[in-house]
Design a protein around this nucleic acid. Structure first.
Lengths: 345, 345
DNA sequence: CTGAATCACTAAACCGGTTTCGTAGGTTCA
DNA sequence: TGAACCTACGAAACCGGTTTAGTGATTCAG
């Protein structure tokens, strides 16, 4: 069928071993024969059989990504597809491939990793949606898989992290609102067991405290539109209702924006809103969303690179990517007068 | 390291070959020894080494999916993540795995498939975003890969298709609008070189013709929010501007909805809008979107199953999934009076 | 001039399975 | 009783690479 290493050896008049050494740049072949072997190999159009290589070297030449989210929720998150595209762009240059697994539930997730490891499907994994005390860190060590985490988990982790600090973005959005005269600025947070849910809340808290404002207007949601709308309803029902809301992602912000408008609350006249992600949709809303622009493609590209480096024995420290930037839209404006804000009806 | 087939053979006092036959249910081993071998294997906790199996059987135990879309666009499409979750749910039950590749541009796409095939990374592929005359059909045949297509391409295809007919959904939405008294119903279509872009336009045309209405209010867009907004702007600028717009997906519909509102056009009072996909976000908009509910998870599950059947030599005909259903929201309402609709300012 | 070290390469083991081929032992039938 | 035929299994080839051990020729030091 296809041309094998034996064919090359035969044609070049050398042994299989010599061909292997020649092509892997190992010592043990003279420059002249190496050149001849390379010539013959390219003439014959030989490409090493990846499966044979995988068996003899005990490598997979693949990295894994286990997505543990509700598929319905997943569909609305702009992060993953873009992130994966970034990962892929690095992998393809290194003749690696991405094995994607989706797993729902704690058990299923662990099983997925175990199966990937046991079957030797991957050499390493990318850990996304990192949780505050993430059990996967220990699991990867047990399984002997290489790994990278997106941002640094709170506990001890021996794996490199690729960090895109959301603190400055959220703090910037909060300061932006404070500068506009807002005082009652709420935060609708994401799932707090995720480190990015947690860090965004803390960033908001920090900026509020620094601005001399209270941090009692917090609602924990879970990054979904449904939760975003519910949290907004909750906040707007309050006696001391906020004049601005910092949402932990665009999806919740859009749901919140729509909910407010459905209640006759004008954005940004009565209520200012900020999101996080800078979804394509954000700039086409009415009003366009003030949000924070991340770069998931870059994140994916770098995460994959760090993982590959690790597989090559190169072990650097954490990498910190450029901070996401605030993108001003029309959903934020000057704080309404107190009286007006508290008596909407 | 790990326990191999030789260990089992040794422990059971038989040869490697006997163990292999016993575990694959082949003839050539007596029932008694088969039972003994199975017992020993399970005692030793033996699991066949997938890489060795892959080499000797020339199989990959994996299927591929090449996504050829702009990553930024991808992020906003709810289809893929849910579809992939469905695919995965079938694969995991069969000890298969999904290899995901993202490729931008015609050349890159073809290269991706060639590389997957050459490296023996996958046994078959799932073809999504099928184009009207899709060159990938011939390519897969050339490469000797199994395949399934989502919906049936127009040209000849020897591969099974898993179909979810969008005709009835779009036609239903159009009829719904006609029943509400609309006469100038526009369609903002998706990329027409995709069969689903094309079929949705035809479904709209068919329903319009059957309703005795003209089909001149058509704008081709490309499924993005930007294009949806631009197409809406185009339509609303017209002298004979529509009183309703059928969008080919939710993303464009949401952008169109927002654009109309930003122009002071009330939805649904002045303009009715329908989408397609039933994104989570759709029901949390203001007004909630009338849209069409598809089941991408089911689609993925079935597509993967059909592909696996094919790999097992079982070759059935096309499978037709239940038709997507119209979901009524608040974005559609009775047609405004003619005079009002034509003199908005 | 000789023993040791180096070089360039071959032969063969190895990774862990599958599959073909050969054969010992028992059964069937003429 | 012997030829023909199964059955049940072992031995070994095979998939296509990598890696180690070994060998003959050359180089070098003493």
């Amino acid at each position: 069928m296809s041309v094998t290493i034996s064919d090359v050896a035969l044609a070049a008049g050398v042994s299989k071993g010599a061909v292997s050494h020649a092509l892997n740049g190992n010592a043990g072949v003279s420059e002249s024969t190496r050149a001849r072997i390379l010539q013959v190999a390219s003439d014959l159009g030989w490409k090493p059989n990846l499966r044979a290589k995988a068996l003899s070297t005990s490598k997979a030449f693949a990295v894994g990504l286990v997505v543990a989210r509700d598929p319905r929720l997943l569909g609305t998150d702009p992060f993953f597809p873009a992130f994966i595209a970034g990962v892929e762009s690095t992998l393809v240059e290194n003749d690696f491939v991405l094995v994607l697994t989706s797993a729902m539930g704690q058990d299923k997730e662990e099983q997925s990793y175990r199966k990937l490891a046991r079957d030797g499907r991957v050499d390493g994994v990318i850990l996304t949606d990192v949780r505050v005390r993430d059990p996967r860190i220990a699991l990867m060590q047990e399984l002997g898989l290489a790994a990278v985490t997106l941002n640094r988990p709170e506990g001890v982790s021996s794996f490199p992290a690729v960090c895109m600090d959301d603190t400055e973005g959220i703090a910037g959005a909060t300061r932006h609102l404070i500068a506009l005269g807002h005082e009652r600025i709420a935060h609708v947070g994401g799932t707090q067991s995720y480190i990015h849910g947690c860090s965004r809340r803390r960033a908001w808290e920090g900026a509020m405290v620094r601005g001399g404002l209270k941090t009692d207007l917090f609602v924990e949601a879970d990054f979904t539109a449904a939760a975003g709308a519910a949290a907004t309803a909750d906040l707007l029902r309050r006696r001391d209702r906020p004049t601005a809301i910092v949402f932990a992602n665009d999806l919740m912000a859009i749901a919140g924006l729509s909910f407010a408008q459905s209640q006759g609350i004008a954005v940004p006249a009565d209520l200012s809103i900020t999101g996080y992600d800078n979804t394509e949709l954000a700039s086409f809303l009415n009003p366009p969303l003030t949000t924070i622009s991340t770069d998931p493609v870059l994140w994916g590209r770098v995460a994959a690179q760090v993982l590959l480096d690790q597989l090559n024995g190169v072990r650097g420290g954490d990498i910190v990517l450029p901070e996401p930037q605030l993108v001003l839209g029309g959903s934020t404006g000057p704080a309404p007068s107190m009286d007006f804000a508290n008596s909407p009806d």
